[in-house]
Lab assay of single mutants.
Amino acid sequence: MSIQHFRVALIPFFAAFCLPVFAHPETLVKVKDAEDQLGARVGYIELDLNSGKILESFRPEERFPMMSTFKVLLCGAVLSRVDAGQEQLGRRIHYSQNDLVEYSPVTEKHLTDGMTVRELCSAAITMSDNTAANLLLTTIGGPKELTAFLHNMGDHVTRLDRWEPELNEAIPNDERDTTMPAAMATTLRKLLTGELLTLASRQQLIDWMEADKVAGPLLRSALPAGWFIADKSGAGERGSRGIIAALGPDGKPSRIVVIYTTGSQATMDERNRQIAEIGASLIKHW
């Protein structure tokens, strides 16, 4: 067993022997301040990774656009098919120029040779490549099948209805392509620590998230040296922004954090800054 596999296998073990965790309302004060600064709703939840206990939450059962955070769930569904012998990570998928959609920095470079399922998941999570996500959605049967996968996990809230990039439209009061912070946090925890996926697939999923290259201005910008984070960000229309993450000190994750916002007129930089400040408060009061 590799060191990384050992780390993920012992996530519940280490967490069980940690000192009790206590909620700190100071972080919620910052979440509410972010709402004021952005002029928009902000949803927040913080779960203990081992027990699933909610440590703090704000608007945990209000719907927010998922945006690209759905790509972690998508690759979880792909990995479940791999575990069941219905898919192979090494299978190569070929596609054409007509398949390319807006923001496809990886797939646009491989029109000639195609990409493997493993490479597509890596591109979808680490670079948020939209064509990679659409190609992977095709392998599982489309958005409705991802929703069905989530329902089978016990998540009857999260739903995907459309493809990239239309799913980022974020129309107010439109339930399409949305989740709730509580539902997303619980589902992410199941994917990373539950028995739904094999140990190898859980490790692969967290490795992809740990290698995320496009979430630097968010929670990662607030992390002290030595902290662990595996995350996936999302951005959408109407001032929408979000991030889902597993993080913790001492090089291992111990909490799940989900943050979503929508309806702001603020710039992307300002949305990023507010999420980073929430992260800084979380870490300060850990």
Score class of each variant (00 low, 15 high):
residue 243 I to T: 14
residue 256 I to M: 12
residue 46 E to N: 08
residue 34 A to C: 08
residue 184 M to H: 02
residue 162 R to Y: 03
residue 94 H to S: 07
residue 278 I to A: 02
residue 98 N to H: 10
residue 160 L to P: 10
residue 172 P to T: 08
residue 157 V to L: 05
residue 53 K to H: 13
residue 141 G to N: 03
residue 29 V to A: 14
residue 225 A to P: 11
residue 128 S to W: 01
residue 73 L to H: 04
residue 258 V to Q: 01
residue 64 F to M: 13
residue 188 L to I: 15
residue 164 E to H: 00
residue 32 K to R: 08
residue 279 G to S: 06
residue 216 G to F: 14
residue 207 D to A: 06
residue 266 A to D: 07
residue 264 S to G: 11
residue 250 D to C: 05
residue 219 L to M: 11
residue 126 T to V: 07
residue 220 R to M: 05
residue 102 E to M: 05
residue 71 K to Y: 00
residue 250 D to Q: 04
residue 47 L to D: 02
residue 77 A to Q: 04
residue 171 I to W: 15
residue 167 L to D: 01
residue 238 R to F: 15
residue 183 A to H: 14
residue 111 L to F: 11
residue 69 T to A: 03
residue 161 D to I: 09
residue 274 Q to E: 10
residue 53 K to R: 15
residue 117 V to S: 03
residue 43 G to I: 01
residue 259 I to W: 05
residue 273 R to D: 09
residue 128 S to H: 01
residue 158 T to Y: 02
residue 63 R to W: 10
residue 240 S to T: 09
residue 200 A to L: 12
residue 178 T to A: 04
residue 96 S to A: 06
residue 32 K to T: 10
residue 38 L to V: 06
residue 260 Y to L: 08
residue 42 V to M: 09
residue 90 G to A: 09
residue 119 E to R: 13
residue 100 L to A: 10
residue 284 K to T: 08
residue 222 A to F: 08
residue 97 Q to G: 11
residue 217 P to N: 12
residue 43 G to V: 01
residue 181 P to A: 14
residue 151 H to L: 06
residue 27 T to S: 14
residue 129 D to R: 01
residue 120 L to G: 02
residue 153 M to E: 04
residue 137 L to E: 11
residue 74 L to T: 10
residue 285 H to R: 10
residue 272 N to A: 10
residue 98 N to P: 08
residue 68 S to V: 01
residue 286 W to N: 03
residue 271 R to V: 10
residue 28 L to G: 07
residue 196 L to Y: 11
residue 77 A to H: 04
residue 202 R to W: 06
residue 85 G to L: 10
residue 56 E to W: 03
residue 55 L to N: 13
residue 200 A to Y: 07
residue 190 K to Y: 15
residue 211 A to M: 15
residue 176 R to I: 06
residue 52 G to I: 03
residue 162 R to H: 09
residue 118 R to P: 14
residue 266 A to E: 08
residue 116 T to D: 11
residue 266 A to P: 06
residue 61 E to F: 15
residue 38 L to C: 11
residue 54 I to K: 13
residue 226 G to Q: 05
residue 200 A to T: 12
residue 69 T to K: 00
residue 217 P to W: 13
residue 226 G to I: 03
residue 140 I to T: 10
residue 62 E to I: 09
residue 114 G to P: 10
residue 100 L to D: 02
residue 105 P to W: 10
residue 115 M to H: 03
residue 92 R to G: 10
residue 286 W to K: 03
residue 236 G to E: 04
residue 40 A to E: 08
residue 61 E to T: 14
residue 201 S to E: 02
residue 274 Q to D: 09
residue 248 G to R: 02
residue 267 T to Q: 12
residue 82 V to P: 01
residue 102 E to W: 05
residue 90 G to R: 12
residue 147 T to Y: 06
residue 224 P to N: 15
residue 113 D to G: 04
residue 239 G to E: 02
residue 260 Y to R: 00
residue 193 T to S: 11
residue 183 A to S: 14
residue 167 L to V: 09
residue 46 E to P: 00
residue 252 K to V: 11
residue 199 L to V: 04
residue 280 A to C: 12
residue 174 D to V: 07
residue 164 E to P: 00
residue 252 K to E: 09
residue 183 A to T: 13
residue 193 T to L: 10
residue 213 K to M: 06
residue 73 L to K: 01
residue 206 I to G: 06
residue 187 T to D: 15
residue 156 H to W: 12
residue 255 R to V: 13
residue 228 F to K: 03
residue 104 S to M: 03
residue 234 G to H: 01
residue 209 M to I: 02
residue 91 R to N: 11
residue 38 L to W: 09
residue 168 N to F: 00
residue 46 E to H: 10
residue 187 T to K: 02
residue 192 L to A: 11
residue 65 P to D: 01
residue 129 D to I: 01
residue 219 L to R: 04
residue 106 V to Q: 14
residue 186 T to P: 12
residue 254 S to D: 11
residue 190 K to F: 08
residue 151 H to V: 04
residue 268 M to N: 14
residue 253 P to Q: 10
residue 154 G to E: 09
residue 185 A to S: 09
residue 122 S to L: 11
residue 139 T to V: 11
residue 239 G to N: 07
residue 47 L to T: 08
residue 162 R to N: 14
residue 68 S to L: 00
residue 247 L to A: 11
residue 45 I to E: 10
residue 212 D to Q: 07
residue 110 H to P: 11
residue 93 I to N: 10
residue 206 I to C: 08
residue 157 V to P: 03
residue 203 Q to I: 03
residue 277 E to Q: 13
residue 87 E to Q: 11
residue 208 W to H: 12
residue 248 G to Q: 02
residue 235 A to K: 02
residue 114 G to E: 04
residue 254 S to N: 10
residue 263 G to W: 06
residue 197 L to S: 08
residue 258 V to K: 01
residue 281 S to Q: 15
residue 31 V to C: 05
residue 106 V to G: 15
residue 71 K to F: 00
residue 91 R to S: 09
residue 85 G to W: 10
residue 114 G to W: 06
residue 156 H to N: 14
residue 101 V to Q: 06
residue 201 S to W: 07
residue 48 D to R: 04
residue 285 H to W: 08
residue 114 G to L: 08
residue 237 E to N: 13
residue 130 N to P: 01
residue 40 A to Y: 09
residue 121 C to A: 05
residue 73 L to D: 04
residue 198 T to G: 08
residue 186 T to E: 15
residue 57 S to G: 06
residue 69 T to M: 03
residue 199 L to F: 15
residue 138 T to Y: 15
residue 111 L to Q: 14
residue 178 T to C: 05
residue 167 L to I: 06
residue 60 P to C: 09
residue 254 S to P: 07
residue 202 R to C: 07
residue 224 P to K: 14
residue 93 I to C: 15
residue 226 G to N: 06
residue 60 P to L: 13
residue 172 P to C: 13
residue 225 A to W: 14
residue 84 A to W: 15
residue 270 E to N: 03
residue 40 A to L: 04
residue 230 A to C: 12
residue 91 R to A: 12
residue 191 L to S: 13
residue 169 E to T: 08
residue 260 Y to M: 07
residue 86 Q to S: 12
residue 142 G to P: 02
residue 102 E to N: 08
residue 166 E to A: 12
residue 165 P to C: 07
residue 123 A to I: 12
residue 127 M to H: 07
residue 52 G to H: 10
residue 193 T to W: 10
residue 153 M to N: 06
residue 39 G to W: 10
residue 66 M to A: 13
residue 87 E to L: 10
residue 103 Y to D: 07
residue 75 C to W: 02
residue 120 L to W: 01
residue 85 G to P: 02
residue 82 V to G: 06
residue 105 P to E: 09
residue 266 A to V: 05
residue 119 E to N: 11
residue 118 R to D: 14
residue 64 F to Q: 02
residue 240 S to A: 09
residue 33 D to C: 05
residue 108 E to Y: 15
residue 169 E to G: 07
residue 169 E to D: 04
residue 242 G to R: 01
residue 207 D to R: 08
residue 104 S to V: 14
residue 279 G to Q: 03
residue 35 E to C: 11
residue 239 G to I: 00
residue 154 G to I: 02
residue 109 K to P: 11
residue 227 W to Q: 00
residue 135 L to G: 02
residue 48 D to W: 03
residue 74 L to F: 00
residue 58 F to N: 11
residue 247 L to Q: 02
residue 151 H to E: 04
residue 48 D to F: 03
residue 106 V to R: 11
residue 278 I to E: 01
residue 171 I to E: 15
residue 152 N to E: 15
residue 117 V to H: 03
residue 121 C to S: 03
residue 202 R to E: 11
residue 198 T to D: 09
residue 214 V to H: 13
residue 145 E to S: 11
residue 222 A to G: 13
residue 108 E to W: 12
residue 126 T to P: 03
residue 221 S to F: 04
residue 262 T to P: 02
residue 103 Y to M: 11
residue 107 T to K: 01
residue 27 T to R: 14
residue 235 A to T: 05
residue 54 I to V: 15
residue 70 F to T: 07
residue 159 R to D: 03
residue 109 K to Q: 15
residue 24 H to P: 04
residue 231 D to S: 13
residue 126 T to S: 04
residue 207 D to Q: 04
residue 59 R to P: 01
residue 89 L to Y: 08
residue 272 N to T: 12
residue 175 E to W: 11
residue 92 R to K: 13
residue 197 L to K: 11
residue 256 I to E: 02
residue 240 S to Y: 03
residue 117 V to P: 07
residue 170 A to I: 09
residue 216 G to H: 09
residue 49 L to G: 13
residue 248 G to W: 02
residue 133 A to L: 01
residue 264 S to N: 05
residue 72 V to S: 07
residue 25 P to I: 15
residue 193 T to M: 15
residue 147 T to E: 04
residue 55 L to H: 14
residue 252 K to W: 07
residue 40 A to P: 03
residue 235 A to D: 02
